[in-house]
């Protein structure tokens, strides 16, 4: 028994697998790469045994066969990674998601430094902050911005994430874009104002 497979779906699978880049480097890999590059639709076929080994958990007839493979069996190849990682234009929510993590890491590192100074230093953290203000007065405003912006930005994006988690609203692309712009419009001015004011 020979079955003709919809090769468009096979191509999709290959595009996904291409992201793993460099996992495979044999002849089959080269041929699969050509298949994606040439965008042809060759006729593929499975024998009856292969069809019987299809995924039992799916209600849809599978177009591909899944085989479990151990890490040791996967031979790294010398193929370059798919270029879509480098040429992809990141949308604003993706960039802001990255910055959410970056600001979180920055806050964590800064807080560790302040707490470490408080815990292990000869003086309290306030003493070192006063020392910074007296020694380098020009650095005070940038230092304030470096504290204020990550704090405000990370807080606002975190609150938005809580809102998403709790209400499941605002998750459409246009709404996410709007909330991204709103957060930027709020966090940057507030941070700039906080950088220049004193209590």
């Amino acid at each position: 028994m020979r079955v003709i497979i919809n090769n468009g779906i096979v191509n999709k699978g290959l595009l996904n697998s291409n992201f793993a880049g460099g996992l495979y480097g044999n002849n089959q890999t080269k041929s699969s790469h050509k298949l994606v590059q040439s965008n042809k639709s060759p006729i593929a076929s499975f024998d009856e045994t292969t069809i019987n080994q299809r995924n039992q958990y799916s209600t849809v007839q599978p177009k591909i066969k899944m085989v479990l493979k151990n890490k040791e069996e996967v031979v790294p190849g010398q193929r370059p990674t798919s270029p879509h990682v480098t040429i992809y234009k990141f949308p604003l929510p993706a960039v802001m998601s990255i910055f959410h993590r970056v600001t979180g890491i920055a806050l964590g590192v800064g807080l560790t430094a302040v707490c470490g100074a408080s815990l292990f230093g000869a003086h309290d953290s306030v003493y070192y902050l006063e020392l910074l203000k007296n020694t380098y007065p020009l650095l005070v405003a940038p230092a304030k911005f470096c504290v204020a912006f990550p704090l405000v930005y990370h807080t606002l994006t975190g609150v938005r994430h809580l809102f998403w988690d709790e209400t499941l609203k605002g998750l459409h692309i246009k709404e996410v874009d709007k909330s991204c712009l709103l957060i930027l419009a709020v966090s940057i001015p507030i941070s700039l104002i906080l950088a220049w004011i004193s209590i």
Binding site: G13, N16, S17, N27, S45, T50
Partner: peptide, 15 residues
Amino acid sequence: SIVPINNKSGNILIQ
């Protein structure tokens, strides 16, 4: 991740 491997019974791709 899904990776293609050789199929000895045919000249097709198996995931």
